[in-house]
């Protein structure tokens, strides 16, 4: 087999080029977005806050956790327009759980859990919340995702 100048080293290099190319292709984003804070690749979500207030306690979502995961939020802080109770006031790009992660984990996580308990639940697929602008229902009073800060 000596006369074929394709040896295992050469094959290894070719494979490295292919997979390295794939990884490079993956890391080097062709059309990067501004990742400072919350990126705005999709339409904002119209969040029906009142619909949730009817069925849940405020502290089910609004939280300030201590070391033992106890919610030590002072409920007197929960008034409309307080900038400190917004998710993005803690969950910013410096936090371990960033803004996008915090929203998605809270919404989709809870919707999935209630679906598992066979109870009526909210949407879990992307475009159900991130609707095209024309379809955004008007009665939803509050827009999450930091666009109206």
């Amino acid at each position: 087999m000596k006369y074929i100048p394709v040896n295992s080293k050469f094959c290894f290099i070719m494979l490295c080029l292919f997979f390295g190319g794939m990884v490079m292709f993956s890391i080097v984003d062709a059309f990067p977005v501004d990742q400072s804070g919350c990126d705005t690749q999709r339409n904002p979500v119209a969040f029906p806050h009142e619909m949730h207030m009817e069925n849940f306690d405020c502290e089910d979502c609004h939280h300030v956790y201590d070391d033992q995961n106890n919610n030590e939020l002072d409920s007197s802080e929960l008034y409309s327009g307080n900038p400190d109770i917004k998710c993005s006031s803690c969950h910013d790009s410096d936090n371990k759980i960033q803004t996008r992660q915090a929203f998605h984990r809270l919404c989709i996580g809870c919707h999935n859990q209630t679906a598992k308990m066979n109870q009526p639940t909210g949407p879990t697929m992307c475009n159900d919340c991130h609707r095209p602008e024309a379809e955004a229902p008007e009665e939803y009073e509050m827009i999450i995702r930091g666009l109206n800060d």
Binding site: A30, F31, V33, H104, N112, C126
Partner: peptide, 19 residues
């Protein structure tokens, strides 16, 4: 990756949606 993160708490790096 968002659905992965919401279900299992881990995700890979992701492209922008345009890419």
């Amino acid at each position: 990756n968002v659905l992965l993160d919401a279900s299992f708490g881990f995700s890979f790096i992701s492209f922008s949606e345009k890419t």
